[in-house]
Design a protein around this nucleic acid. Structure first.
Lengths: 199, 199
DNA sequence: GTCTATACGCCGATAGAC
DNA sequence: GTCTATCGGCGTATAGAC
């Protein structure tokens, strides 16, 4: 369980190393099953003290982790919206992104979808009140206005569309769907889009 | 959910009282944010010792809670399948049940959907490997065989159908969708069913 | 920035009287 | 079955030397 580095390497532990190791552990075992001792081991230092150089406490790690992930997601979505004019294309690329992340950086998606942020950080905003998710809702709102998506409460549309996407990703991450996310993407996109598209 | 304990008994704390209080706390604050002290307070005894009369440890509480909920769900689904011959009707009634529970016993749905059982009980089966969920999958399999549902991997169909249902219920439970679950039911059912129905 | 050392609160859990 | 009392331990966090 402990990954020791028998090699003697100097380790200036950076903030990013701590974040990376924590993300991995949190997504594998859960926040509450991860102690600072675990993190310190994963990072390769002898005591937990080094961690406190970068973070006030354990919560702060989860907090910045969460913030970073949301920020990067937010930026990606901005980029997608800039590059695509039509709403269906925008949504399609967002789905692309999420499925690609599920294969390439599963910890990120795991953290986003499975970890219950309210339980860890009671003061944090609900996922749904964060920048990237607001942007997704705005995309959907535009889709309704432009007539690509059926007239309905945007939040409901969001719920259907991402319900299918998230649930599929969840089953992939848990291993219940055995292949890579990539294999389920186009089908899932179609189902999700059909559930809100004007017919 | 609970075994019938239909009385107004006096002081002695029953197993069901502990289960009920724990369910409430777990679904409100999360398993790890709930201490035995919290449970003992909720139950109205002075020390945690009483709890150990009924349960070996804290995990055992969550374990039997989980088992009870799954059992009762399983029984309900059996009942639904017995009363309805056609697959769409069966699914419709399952959705009925889940939405009704979300309004009448939100803790139960919260526990089922939001609580990550693997984090609490690493030895437990995935939700998807439990009796009630297997039965739901079997319903879907039948639907495919009988031609009501499109030909596809049953697990994928499950993912789409319940992705929409679960996500909608999640948003209701979190308060992001402001009204009672009841208000979103028929629309959600239609979207979920359309996502897998033969067209 | 990393170490040694240490503090200490909280929680889960047990023993034994009533 | 509930109480009093208590224990061990883990996990978080700090102080201060290097």
């Amino acid at each position: 369980m402990d990954k020791e580095k028998s090699t003697t390497e100097k380790k200036p532990v950076t903030q990013d190393e701590v974040l990376l190791a924590s993300l991995k552990l949190f997504s594998e075992k859960g926040y509450f099953n991860t102690s600072l001792t675990d993190i310190k081991d994963a990072v390769g230092i002898k005591t937990t003290s080094g961690i406190y150089q970068h973070f006030k406490n354990k919560q702060a790690i989860a907090d910045t982790l969460y913030g970073n992930i949301l920020d990067s997601l937010s930026i990606s979505i901005d980029d997608i919206r800039r590059r695509n004019r039509k709403v269906p294309d925008q949504l399609r690329e967002i789905v692309d992104l999420l499925f690609k992340l599920a294969d390439d950086a599963p910890e990120v998606i795991q953290f986003l979808l499975v970890v219950n942020i309210k339980e860890i950080l009671p003061e944090q905003k609900t996922v749904i009140d964060t920048a990237p998710f607001n942007k997704m809702r705005r995309v959907i709102q535009n889709g309704i206005k432009e007539g690509d998506i059926r007239a309905m409460d945007p939040l409901i549309a969001y719920s259907y569309f991402f319900g299918i996407i998230k649930h599929t990703l969840s089953l992939v991450l848990s291993g219940d769907l055995p292949k890579d996310a990539d294999n389920y993407q186009s089908q899932a996109w179609l189902a999700a889009w059909s559930s809100i598209a004007k017919r």
